[in-house]
Design a protein around this nucleic acid. Sequence first.
DNA 1: AGTATAGGTAAGCAAATGCTTACGAGTCAA
DNA 2: TTGACTCGTAAGCATTTGCTTACCTATACT
Lengths: 110, 110
Amino acid sequence: MVVTPQPEPDVFCAISHPARRRMLDLLAAADRSVGAIAAHFEMSRPAVSQHLRVLLDAGLVTEQRHGRERHYHFVPDRLGPVREWIAQYERFWDERLGRLQKLLSEGTTE
Amino acid sequence: MVVTPQPEPDVFCAISHPARRRMLDLLAAADRSVGAIAAHFEMSRPAVSQHLRVLLDAGLVTEQRHGRERHYHFVPDRLGPVREWIAQYERFWDERLGRLQKLLSEGTTE
DNA sequence: AGTATAGGTAAGCAAATGCTTACGAGTCAA
DNA sequence: TTGACTCGTAAGCATTTGCTTACCTATACT
């Protein structure tokens, strides 16, 4: 097998786990240490570290050493792909465009 | 382990796979049969069926028998959770709110 | 009837996920 | 230095994911 070096750790994959989304929510409010994050979860601290590693690889967070603590910081820009992908469907929620689309569809064969 | 009957098949999970996102893109443009969808992918047709099943379980698509074909139909409403979750971060892209937040944070102790 | 087409399902498998416990490396404080 | 504390990493494991091939049912055509 060819070892693709970095198939770009997928952001969609990173946010697919509820725990990781909650971690992002926490970090969006404020930078936090691993311990402070782990306090919000039932799972073991290493498990939290592993989730943070996934977020780190996806570029969704950065870490910064602070004494013996590591503070994680939210990087909103990396949510761009998700934001853009979901934005392409906005027309389905937009009433004005919805009405326009309905008008147009009355003239189509579908 | 307790068998949770239906832990609500996660929409975030369903869209985490690139192929499934492309299938939604295709279906957003028009309803399509399985064969028509499979034509856009390298993988086997059963694999496509399995992906469609995931989308179906997540409620992101519906199927409708049409003779011996099954037409899949995009259900945009089910993207709501993703849309809402990403919307909560809009403030990070909004310059005006960004400046407001900066002002507010100067008065907090955290 | 018989045959082709559309598409779901089962079984099998390799690889990835998500957890756990055990341990190690760095930092602070006595 | 000794010990407590923060946190990452390694190893092990059960489960899930994502694919394959083989097979089945249902519809359509002749």
